[in-house]
């Protein structure tokens, strides 16, 4: 076995007093910052200005906003054209309509043509819980991984979201950012540096490693707290960069744990759980893996998001239960 490269650790504790922040506000802040920094930004929406909380930016920079109407194929195609015309376009609309309706435009006009388009999938997972599967996006990470060239990112808090957008605008090429609409506590200190590709170790812990992506990182952190209270030493790794991913670094983080649990508001097929399973198999880690998410071959249930998370064991209580059951089975 070759030694895995050491990844930077952002082992910060959750600053409990920090108020929860809407990641969309980070996005809008990043748009303003990009324009100030001289990025030739164009924000492209499909009647999704309210979904994206775009009003302040649109008021300040109306000439940088393009609304194509309720037309997602046009949204992505027009963004690709704006890119070919010298803009750095960023699309912002609900993730289910981006990845499903405009799938071929994402594949060909953005990924295959390698245009400099940034795609923001708003309110992915089951964020639109009661609105049903038309509005859920539990396949976006899987679908995007099927395409070449595109970077696939998902921040877990406002600090990370801001850094991630700064990266996206500096990078020449397609980027997908899965952006949650939940108000999320801040997990990272202001000095946090998002490093493309690096898994983000939030907690050390020997008994179990919880691996999560996006807003459910907070469920994993809460579950780790609950486990600690019961004397179980749980580690937490967030994977903000699905592609590229420093696989040796993630394998290194998982190597010591007898039990690995992945947590994703996504199908367990083709998302984080599948990725971790590949890495564990390819590195012959041999430890047990439990993947929590929407089971393969199913649409998610409809209802309040918290209820959906509880049903699939995606909340902190569910993660705690899975870990305790698994440990009881192993013991």
């Amino acid at each position: 076995m070759t030694a895995a490269p050491t990844a930077p650790t952002n082992a910060t504790t959750a600053p409990t007093e920090t108020p929860a922040q809407d990641l969309r506000q980070s996005m809008i802040d990043a748009f303003f910052q990009a324009v100030d920094d001289g990025v030739n930004l164009a924000v492209v929406v499909s009647d999704s200005t309210s979904t994206a909380k775009l009003a302040p930016f649109q008021a300040a920079h109306p000439e940088r906003v393009v609304n194509v109407g309720i037309a997602e194929q046009s949204l992505v195609g027009v963004a690709a054209g704006l890119s070919l015309g010298g803009y750095v376009p960023v699309t912002a609309n609900a993730a289910p309509f981006l990845v499903a309706r405009a799938n071929e435009q994402v594949k060909n006009d953005v990924c295959y043509s390698n245009t400099n388009v940034k795609l923001v999938g708003l309110n992915a997972g089951v964020a639109y819980g009661p609105l049903g599967s038309t509005h859920h996006a539990i396949d976006d990470l899987s679908i995007m991984q099927g395409f070449g060239t595109i970077q696939i990112l998902a921040p877990s808090d406002a600090v990370e979201a801001r850094r991630m957008f700064a990266h996206a605008f500096a990078h020449e090429g397609p980027v997908y950012i899965r952006l949650d609409n939940a108000k999320l506590p801040v997990l990272h200190e202001d000095g946090y540096r998002f490093t493309l590709g690096e898994p983000d170790r939030l907690r050390e812990g020997a008994a179990v490693t919880l691996v999560a992506v996006g807003s459910v990182v907070h469920e994993a952190v809460a579950a780790a707290d609950a486990l600690a209270a019961k004397g179980v030493d749980a580690g937490v790794v967030s994977v903000p960069s699905i592609r590229p991913l420093n696989r040796p670094a993630l394998a290194h983080m998982l190597r010591a744990a007898p039990l690995v649990v992945t947590v994703e508001e996504h199908s367990v097929h083709g998302g984080l759980g599948s990725l971790v399973a590949e890495i564990m198999a390819e590195n012959a880690l041999g430890s047990r893996l439990i993947r929590i998410g929407i089971p393969d071959g199913q649409f998610a249930k409809t209802g309040p998001r918290a209820a959906i998370r509880a049903y699939y064991g995606l909340d902190s209580a569910g993660i705690l239960r899975e870990v305790q059951n698994a440990r009881a089975t192993v013991a």
């Binding site: 195609g77 027009v78 054209g81 015309g85 006009d109």
Partner: peptide
């Protein structure tokens, strides 16, 4: 069906 949307973006740019 891909050319016209992209051409539209290019013309708008």
């Amino acid at each position: 069906g891909h050319g016209l949307p992209v051409a539209t973006g290019l013309a708008l740019a």
